[in-house]
Computed example of a mutant assay.
Amino acid sequence: MLFSEGTGILDANVSIPSGSVNGVQRADITTIARELGISVATVHRALHNSGSVSESTRRRVLETAQRVGYRPNRIAQELRARKTFTIGVTFTGISSAFYASILDGVEEAAHQAGYSVLLSCSHDDPVKEREQIELLLEKRVAGIILSPADPSASASYYSGLIEEGVRLVFVGRYVPGVPGDSVETNNSLGGYLVGKHLAGLGRQRIGIVTTIAPKRQYTYVLERIAGCQQALQEHGLSATIIGEDFEERLPLPRFAYKAVRDYLRKGGAVDAVFALNDDLAYGAINALFDAGYRVPEDVSVVGFNDEAMSEFFRPALTTVRSALRELGIQAVHLLLERIAATESPTLGRRVLIEPQLVVRESCGAKSRGVEANHLHPRKEDLTP
Protein backbone atom coordinates (compact mmCIF):
# COMPACT_ATOMS: atom_id res chain seq x y z
CA MET A 1 0.00 0.00 0.00
CA LEU A 2 1.38 3.38 -0.99
CA PHE A 3 0.65 6.60 0.86
CA SER A 4 1.16 10.24 -0.09
CA GLU A 5 1.58 13.26 2.11
CA GLY A 6 -1.78 14.95 2.47
CA THR A 7 -3.71 12.61 0.17
CA GLY A 8 -3.77 9.29 2.01
CA ILE A 9 -3.76 6.07 -0.02
CA LEU A 10 -2.52 6.32 -3.59
CA ASP A 11 -2.38 2.66 -4.59
CA ALA A 12 -4.17 -0.03 -2.58
CA ASN A 13 -4.43 -3.80 -2.95
CA VAL A 14 -1.46 -3.91 -5.30
CA SER A 15 -0.10 -7.44 -5.70
CA ILE A 16 3.12 -7.92 -7.63
CA PRO A 17 5.18 -11.14 -7.67
CA SER A 18 8.63 -11.00 -6.12
CA GLY A 19 11.29 -9.74 -8.53
CA SER A 20 8.73 -8.45 -11.01
CA VAL A 21 7.27 -5.22 -12.28
CA ASN A 22 3.61 -5.01 -13.27
CA GLY A 23 3.37 -8.78 -12.91
CA VAL A 24 6.18 -9.51 -15.40
CA GLN A 25 9.17 -11.41 -14.03
CA ARG A 26 12.38 -9.41 -14.45
CA ALA A 27 15.97 -10.48 -13.87
CA ASP A 28 18.19 -7.72 -12.50
CA ILE A 29 21.95 -7.27 -12.31
CA THR A 30 22.07 -9.08 -8.97
CA THR A 31 20.75 -12.16 -10.81
CA ILE A 32 23.68 -11.99 -13.23
CA ALA A 33 26.16 -11.40 -10.39
CA ARG A 34 24.91 -14.50 -8.54
CA GLU A 35 25.02 -16.61 -11.70
CA LEU A 36 28.65 -15.72 -12.39
CA GLY A 37 29.90 -15.35 -8.82
CA ILE A 38 31.13 -11.79 -9.37
CA SER A 39 30.25 -8.45 -7.81
CA VAL A 40 27.29 -6.30 -8.79
CA ALA A 41 29.72 -3.47 -9.55
CA THR A 42 31.59 -5.64 -12.08
CA VAL A 43 28.33 -6.58 -13.81
CA HIS A 44 27.35 -2.92 -13.98
CA ARG A 45 30.68 -1.92 -15.56
CA ALA A 46 30.46 -4.76 -18.08
CA LEU A 47 26.91 -3.90 -19.13
CA HIS A 48 27.67 -0.21 -19.48
CA ASN A 49 31.12 -0.69 -21.02
CA SER A 50 32.72 1.44 -18.33
CA GLY A 51 35.67 0.92 -16.02
CA SER A 52 38.24 -1.85 -16.07
CA VAL A 53 36.63 -5.18 -16.95
CA SER A 54 38.38 -7.91 -18.92
CA GLU A 55 36.98 -8.80 -22.32
CA SER A 56 36.27 -12.39 -21.22
CA THR A 57 34.31 -11.19 -18.19
CA ARG A 58 32.39 -8.68 -20.29
CA ARG A 59 31.47 -11.43 -22.76
CA ARG A 60 30.32 -13.77 -19.96
CA VAL A 61 28.19 -11.01 -18.46
CA LEU A 62 26.52 -10.18 -21.79
CA GLU A 63 25.87 -13.85 -22.56
CA THR A 64 24.37 -14.44 -19.11
CA ALA A 65 22.26 -11.28 -19.38
CA GLN A 66 20.76 -12.55 -22.62
CA ARG A 67 20.18 -16.03 -21.20
CA VAL A 68 18.36 -14.88 -18.04
CA GLY A 69 16.31 -12.29 -19.90
CA TYR A 70 17.88 -9.22 -18.32
CA ARG A 71 16.48 -5.87 -19.35
CA PRO A 72 17.93 -2.61 -17.99
CA ASN A 73 15.84 -0.88 -15.33
CA ARG A 74 14.91 2.12 -17.45
CA ILE A 75 13.04 3.69 -14.56
CA ALA A 76 16.19 3.70 -12.44
CA GLN A 77 18.35 4.95 -15.30
CA GLU A 78 15.98 7.81 -16.06
CA LEU A 79 16.20 9.12 -12.50
CA ARG A 80 19.43 10.92 -13.42
CA ALA A 81 17.87 12.63 -16.41
CA ARG A 82 14.33 13.23 -15.14
CA LYS A 83 14.53 14.98 -11.81
CA THR A 84 11.31 14.99 -9.82
CA PHE A 85 10.50 16.71 -6.56
CA THR A 86 9.20 13.68 -4.69
CA ILE A 87 11.07 11.59 -2.13
CA GLY A 88 10.08 7.97 -1.60
CA VAL A 89 10.12 6.53 1.92
CA THR A 90 9.89 2.83 2.77
CA PHE A 91 9.76 1.93 6.46
CA THR A 92 9.38 -1.47 8.09
CA GLY A 93 6.39 -0.13 10.02
CA ILE A 94 4.42 3.09 10.27
CA SER A 95 2.26 2.58 13.37
CA SER A 96 4.96 2.97 16.04
CA ALA A 97 6.09 6.24 17.59
CA PHE A 98 9.63 5.36 16.49
CA TYR A 99 8.89 5.65 12.77
CA ALA A 100 6.31 8.40 13.23
CA SER A 101 8.99 10.60 14.80
CA ILE A 102 11.49 9.87 12.01
CA LEU A 103 8.82 10.57 9.39
CA ASP A 104 8.04 13.90 11.06
CA GLY A 105 11.66 14.94 10.48
CA VAL A 106 11.62 13.62 6.90
CA GLU A 107 8.51 15.58 6.00
CA GLU A 108 9.77 18.79 7.60
CA ALA A 109 13.13 18.71 5.81
CA ALA A 110 11.57 17.63 2.50
CA HIS A 111 8.98 20.41 2.66
CA GLN A 112 11.66 23.02 3.34
CA ALA A 113 13.54 21.80 0.26
CA GLY A 114 10.43 21.89 -1.93
CA TYR A 115 9.87 18.12 -2.06
CA SER A 116 6.79 16.03 -1.33
CA VAL A 117 6.89 12.58 0.27
CA LEU A 118 5.50 9.20 -0.78
CA LEU A 119 5.37 6.67 2.06
CA SER A 120 5.18 2.88 1.89
CA CYS A 121 5.55 0.05 4.40
CA SER A 122 7.32 -3.31 4.09
CA HIS A 123 6.22 -4.82 7.44
CA ASP A 124 9.75 -6.27 7.81
CA ASP A 125 9.21 -8.40 4.69
CA PRO A 126 12.05 -8.11 2.13
CA VAL A 127 9.76 -9.33 -0.68
CA LYS A 128 7.21 -6.61 0.06
CA GLU A 129 10.04 -4.13 0.39
CA ARG A 130 11.22 -4.81 -3.16
CA GLU A 131 7.67 -4.46 -4.45
CA GLN A 132 7.29 -1.10 -2.70
CA ILE A 133 10.63 0.15 -4.02
CA GLU A 134 9.62 -0.78 -7.58
CA LEU A 135 6.33 1.09 -7.11
CA LEU A 136 8.18 4.15 -5.84
CA LEU A 137 10.49 4.03 -8.85
CA GLU A 138 7.47 3.87 -11.14
CA LYS A 139 6.30 7.09 -9.47
CA ARG A 140 9.61 8.68 -10.60
CA VAL A 141 10.76 9.58 -7.10
CA ALA A 142 14.01 11.53 -6.97
CA GLY A 143 15.41 9.18 -4.34
CA ILE A 144 14.45 6.79 -1.56
CA ILE A 145 14.87 6.83 2.22
CA LEU A 146 14.75 3.25 3.43
CA SER A 147 14.56 1.44 6.75
CA PRO A 148 15.85 -1.96 5.55
CA ALA A 149 13.59 -4.94 6.18
CA ASP A 150 16.44 -7.48 6.14
CA PRO A 151 19.86 -5.86 5.57
CA SER A 152 21.78 -9.11 5.06
CA ALA A 153 19.27 -10.74 2.70
CA SER A 154 18.85 -7.65 0.51
CA ALA A 155 22.37 -6.18 0.49
CA SER A 156 23.09 -7.18 -3.12
CA TYR A 157 19.70 -5.81 -4.21
CA TYR A 158 20.45 -2.45 -2.57
CA SER A 159 23.88 -2.37 -4.23
CA GLY A 160 22.25 -3.07 -7.57
CA LEU A 161 19.83 -0.18 -7.15
CA ILE A 162 22.66 2.21 -6.35
CA GLU A 163 24.70 0.97 -9.32
CA GLU A 164 21.68 1.63 -11.56
CA GLY A 165 21.48 5.23 -10.37
CA VAL A 166 18.90 5.11 -7.58
CA ARG A 167 19.66 7.62 -4.81
CA LEU A 168 19.27 5.60 -1.62
CA VAL A 169 19.73 6.53 2.05
CA PHE A 170 19.27 4.08 4.93
CA VAL A 171 17.76 5.33 8.16
CA GLY A 172 17.85 3.62 11.56
CA ARG A 173 19.69 0.55 10.25
CA TYR A 174 23.15 0.27 8.73
CA VAL A 175 23.86 -2.12 5.84
CA PRO A 176 27.56 -3.13 5.81
CA GLY A 177 29.20 -3.39 2.40
CA VAL A 178 26.59 -1.37 0.51
CA PRO A 179 27.70 2.03 -0.90
CA GLY A 180 24.61 3.82 0.35
CA ASP A 181 24.56 6.57 2.95
CA SER A 182 23.01 5.87 6.35
CA VAL A 183 21.94 7.90 9.35
CA GLU A 184 21.27 6.27 12.70
CA THR A 185 21.64 6.62 16.43
CA ASN A 186 25.11 5.97 17.83
CA ASN A 187 23.96 2.67 19.28
CA SER A 188 27.35 1.72 20.71
CA LEU A 189 27.43 4.94 22.70
CA GLY A 190 23.84 4.42 23.85
CA GLY A 191 24.63 0.94 25.12
CA TYR A 192 27.76 2.27 26.80
CA LEU A 193 25.74 4.90 28.66
CA VAL A 194 23.42 2.20 29.99
CA GLY A 195 26.22 -0.11 31.11
CA LYS A 196 28.08 2.67 32.89
CA HIS A 197 24.89 3.85 34.57
CA LEU A 198 23.97 0.40 35.90
CA ALA A 199 27.51 -0.20 37.13
CA GLY A 200 27.39 3.18 38.87
CA LEU A 201 24.24 2.08 40.67
CA GLY A 202 26.16 -0.85 42.13
CA ARG A 203 24.27 -3.49 40.18
CA GLN A 204 26.14 -6.78 39.78
CA ARG A 205 23.85 -9.26 37.97
CA ILE A 206 22.85 -7.57 34.74
CA GLY A 207 20.69 -9.10 32.02
CA ILE A 208 20.34 -7.74 28.49
CA VAL A 209 16.97 -8.54 26.94
CA THR A 210 17.55 -9.09 23.24
CA THR A 211 14.95 -8.94 20.48
CA ILE A 212 13.16 -11.46 18.26
CA ALA A 213 15.29 -13.91 16.28
CA PRO A 214 15.12 -12.31 12.80
CA LYS A 215 16.64 -9.06 14.10
CA ARG A 216 19.36 -10.33 16.43
CA GLN A 217 22.14 -9.94 13.86
CA TYR A 218 21.18 -6.40 12.87
CA THR A 219 23.96 -3.92 13.50
CA TYR A 220 21.96 -1.77 15.91
CA VAL A 221 21.27 -4.80 18.13
CA LEU A 222 24.90 -5.95 18.16
CA GLU A 223 26.19 -2.43 18.78
CA ARG A 224 23.89 -1.74 21.73
CA ILE A 225 24.95 -5.00 23.34
CA ALA A 226 28.65 -4.40 22.63
CA GLY A 227 28.54 -0.86 24.02
CA CYS A 228 26.89 -2.02 27.24
CA GLN A 229 29.31 -4.92 27.66
CA GLN A 230 32.28 -2.59 27.15
CA ALA A 231 31.14 -0.28 29.94
CA LEU A 232 30.48 -3.22 32.26
CA GLN A 233 33.88 -4.75 31.54
CA GLU A 234 35.51 -1.48 32.58
CA HIS A 235 33.93 -2.12 36.00
CA GLY A 236 34.82 -5.81 36.12
CA LEU A 237 31.30 -6.90 35.20
CA SER A 238 29.54 -8.67 32.34
CA ALA A 239 25.94 -9.17 31.27
CA THR A 240 23.88 -12.26 30.46
CA ILE A 241 21.84 -12.16 27.24
CA ILE A 242 18.20 -13.01 27.96
CA GLY A 243 16.02 -14.34 25.15
CA GLU A 244 18.74 -15.40 22.71
CA ASP A 245 17.49 -19.01 22.79
CA PHE A 246 13.84 -17.96 22.52
CA GLU A 247 12.73 -18.47 18.91
CA GLU A 248 9.02 -17.68 19.10
CA ARG A 249 8.16 -14.60 17.04
CA LEU A 250 5.85 -12.40 19.10
CA PRO A 251 5.05 -8.71 19.59
CA LEU A 252 8.04 -7.26 21.44
CA PRO A 253 6.44 -6.68 24.88
CA ARG A 254 5.09 -10.24 24.93
CA PHE A 255 8.40 -11.64 23.68
CA ALA A 256 10.29 -9.89 26.50
CA TYR A 257 7.71 -10.96 29.08
CA LYS A 258 8.05 -14.63 28.16
CA ALA A 259 11.84 -14.49 27.78
CA VAL A 260 12.35 -12.89 31.21
CA ARG A 261 9.74 -15.11 32.84
CA ASP A 262 11.39 -18.27 31.49
CA TYR A 263 14.86 -17.04 32.47
CA LEU A 264 13.74 -16.48 36.06
CA ARG A 265 11.90 -19.81 36.22
CA LYS A 266 15.12 -21.57 35.21
CA GLY A 267 16.93 -20.04 38.17
CA GLY A 268 18.38 -16.98 36.49
CA ALA A 269 19.03 -14.01 38.77
CA VAL A 270 19.18 -10.31 37.91
CA ASP A 271 19.37 -7.05 39.77
CA ALA A 272 19.38 -4.97 36.57
CA VAL A 273 17.89 -5.34 33.09
CA PHE A 274 18.85 -3.49 29.92
CA ALA A 275 16.12 -3.96 27.31
CA LEU A 276 17.26 -3.15 23.77
CA ASN A 277 14.18 -1.01 23.18
CA ASP A 278 11.33 0.40 25.25
CA ASP A 279 8.74 -2.13 24.05
CA LEU A 280 10.97 -4.90 25.38
CA ALA A 281 11.36 -2.99 28.65
CA TYR A 282 7.58 -2.82 29.17
CA GLY A 283 7.33 -6.60 28.88
CA ALA A 284 10.37 -7.19 31.08
CA ILE A 285 8.99 -5.01 33.88
CA ASN A 286 5.67 -6.87 33.88
CA ALA A 287 7.46 -10.23 34.00
CA LEU A 288 9.52 -9.03 36.97
CA PHE A 289 6.42 -7.81 38.80
CA ASP A 290 4.61 -11.11 38.22
CA ALA A 291 7.65 -12.99 39.54
CA GLY A 292 7.55 -10.98 42.78
CA TYR A 293 10.35 -8.51 42.05
CA ARG A 294 10.03 -4.80 42.75
CA VAL A 295 11.19 -2.29 40.14
CA PRO A 296 13.42 -0.42 40.88
CA GLU A 297 13.98 -1.57 44.49
CA ASP A 298 15.03 -5.11 43.54
CA VAL A 299 15.81 -4.71 39.84
CA SER A 300 16.79 -1.63 37.84
CA VAL A 301 15.37 -1.52 34.31
CA VAL A 302 16.57 0.64 31.40
CA GLY A 303 15.17 0.77 27.87
CA PHE A 304 16.21 2.38 24.58
CA ASN A 305 14.53 4.92 22.22
CA ASP A 306 12.42 6.93 24.73
CA GLU A 307 9.03 6.14 23.22
CA ALA A 308 6.22 8.58 24.06
CA MET A 309 4.64 6.08 26.48
CA SER A 310 7.84 5.59 28.50
CA GLU A 311 7.48 8.78 30.51
CA PHE A 312 3.96 7.76 31.58
CA PHE A 313 4.66 4.08 32.23
CA ARG A 314 4.78 3.09 35.90
CA PRO A 315 7.46 3.16 37.05
CA ALA A 316 8.46 5.84 34.54
CA LEU A 317 11.07 4.25 32.31
CA THR A 318 14.72 5.22 32.35
CA THR A 319 15.81 4.97 28.73
CA VAL A 320 18.20 6.14 26.04
CA ARG A 321 16.72 8.94 23.99
CA SER A 322 17.36 8.70 20.27
CA ALA A 323 16.94 11.97 18.37
CA LEU A 324 14.47 10.31 16.01
CA ARG A 325 13.20 13.46 14.35
CA GLU A 326 16.80 14.48 13.70
CA LEU A 327 17.41 11.12 12.02
CA GLY A 328 14.69 11.96 9.51
CA ILE A 329 16.04 15.46 8.90
CA GLN A 330 19.59 14.24 8.34
CA ALA A 331 18.39 11.44 6.05
CA VAL A 332 16.76 14.01 3.77
CA HIS A 333 19.89 16.18 3.77
CA LEU A 334 22.04 13.20 2.76
CA LEU A 335 19.58 12.22 0.05
CA LEU A 336 19.43 15.73 -1.41
CA GLU A 337 23.23 15.76 -1.62
CA ARG A 338 23.14 12.48 -3.55
CA ILE A 339 20.39 13.77 -5.84
CA ALA A 340 22.56 16.78 -6.66
CA ALA A 341 25.63 14.60 -7.31
CA THR A 342 26.50 13.53 -10.85
CA GLU A 343 27.88 10.08 -10.00
CA SER A 344 26.78 7.13 -7.87
CA PRO A 345 28.75 6.76 -4.61
CA THR A 346 31.62 4.29 -4.37
CA LEU A 347 31.60 4.52 -0.57
CA GLY A 348 28.67 5.17 1.71
CA ARG A 349 28.69 7.76 4.46
CA ARG A 350 27.55 6.74 7.93
CA VAL A 351 26.17 9.57 10.08
CA LEU A 352 25.74 8.81 13.79
CA ILE A 353 23.45 10.93 15.96
CA GLU A 354 24.47 11.12 19.62
CA PRO A 355 21.95 9.69 22.13
CA GLN A 356 21.13 10.84 25.66
CA LEU A 357 20.42 8.85 28.82
CA VAL A 358 17.10 9.96 30.34
CA VAL A 359 16.97 8.99 34.02
CA ARG A 360 13.50 8.37 35.45
CA GLU A 361 12.11 6.01 38.10
CA SER A 362 12.71 2.49 36.77
CA CYS A 363 16.46 2.40 37.42
CA GLY A 364 16.29 3.62 41.03
CA ALA A 365 18.99 6.26 40.55
CA LYS A 366 17.00 9.03 42.21
CA SER A 367 16.28 6.98 45.30
CA ARG A 368 19.99 6.07 45.49
CA GLY A 369 21.10 9.66 45.02
CA VAL A 370 23.07 8.92 41.84
CA GLU A 371 23.41 11.70 39.30
CA ALA A 372 23.34 10.90 35.59
CA ASN A 373 25.20 13.95 34.30
CA HIS A 374 28.66 12.45 34.82
CA LEU A 375 27.76 9.29 32.92
CA HIS A 376 28.03 10.79 29.46
CA PRO A 377 31.43 9.68 28.05
CA ARG A 378 33.41 11.40 25.39
CA LYS A 379 33.20 9.65 22.03
CA GLU A 380 36.95 9.08 22.07
CA ASP A 381 36.57 7.03 25.27
CA LEU A 382 34.81 4.32 23.30
CA THR A 383 36.93 1.65 21.66
CA PRO A 384 36.28 1.14 17.92
Score class of each variant (00 low, 15 high):
215 K>T: 04
325 R>E: 14
357 L>M: 11
237 L>M: 08
97 A>S: 15
372 A>T: 11
274 F>C: 08
11 D>F: 09
133 I>T: 03
282 Y>M: 15
76 A>T: 10
314 R>P: 06
300 S>E: 05
161 L>D: 07
78 E>H: 11
373 N>K: 14
159 S>N: 05
181 D>T: 03
356 Q>A: 15
79 L>S: 04
245 D>R: 05
19 G>N: 11
144 I>A: 02
167 R>A: 08
167 R>T: 12
54 S>K: 14
27 A>I: 02
365 A>F: 03
29 I>E: 09
279 D>P: 03
207 G>D: 05
308 A>V: 14
140 R>E: 09
228 C>V: 13
41 A>Y: 09
283 G>I: 13
333 H>V: 02
148 P>D: 08
287 A>H: 08
156 S>F: 04
359 V>K: 12
126 P>N: 10
384 P>C: 03
153 A>T: 00
223 E>K: 00
61 V>M: 06
357 L>N: 08
167 R>P: 03
300 S>T: 02
196 K>F: 06
21 V>R: 15
79 L>P: 00
190 G>E: 09
104 D>R: 15
224 R>S: 00
159 S>L: 03
89 V>N: 05
58 R>S: 14
105 G>A: 06
216 R>I: 02
14 V>E: 06
290 D>S: 14
278 D>V: 15
91 F>W: 05
241 I>F: 01
124 D>V: 14
166 V>G: 00
230 Q>Y: 06
191 G>N: 08
134 E>H: 05
341 A>V: 09
317 L>M: 10
7 T>H: 08
352 L>C: 08
178 V>S: 00
291 A>P: 08
68 V>L: 07
90 T>N: 10
136 L>W: 01
85 F>G: 13
96 S>E: 09
306 D>F: 05
42 T>C: 05
254 R>L: 15
327 L>M: 12
200 G>W: 02
280 L>Y: 11
173 R>F: 00
355 P>R: 01
116 S>A: 11
200 G>T: 00
193 L>P: 01
77 Q>F: 07
374 H>W: 14
50 S>L: 09
383 T>Y: 10
85 F>Q: 15
198 L>G: 08
208 I>S: 00
80 R>F: 10
20 S>M: 10
338 R>W: 02
57 T>H: 08
295 V>D: 01
103 L>D: 04
149 A>G: 06
302 V>K: 03
378 R>A: 12
306 D>W: 06
19 G>C: 10
67 R>A: 03
172 G>V: 02
60 R>C: 10
125 D>W: 05
143 G>W: 01
307 E>C: 07
367 S>D: 12
135 L>K: 03
212 I>W: 00
171 V>P: 02
165 G>Y: 03
276 L>Y: 08
347 L>H: 06
90 T>H: 01
45 R>Y: 04
349 R>K: 14
6 G>R: 11
31 T>F: 09
355 P>E: 13
74 R>C: 13
292 G>F: 11
339 I>D: 12
57 T>P: 04
21 V>K: 14
35 E>Y: 12
206 I>H: 06
327 L>G: 04
327 L>Y: 06
158 Y>T: 04
181 D>K: 00
276 L>A: 11
28 D>W: 10
33 A>L: 10
28 D>S: 14
205 R>P: 04
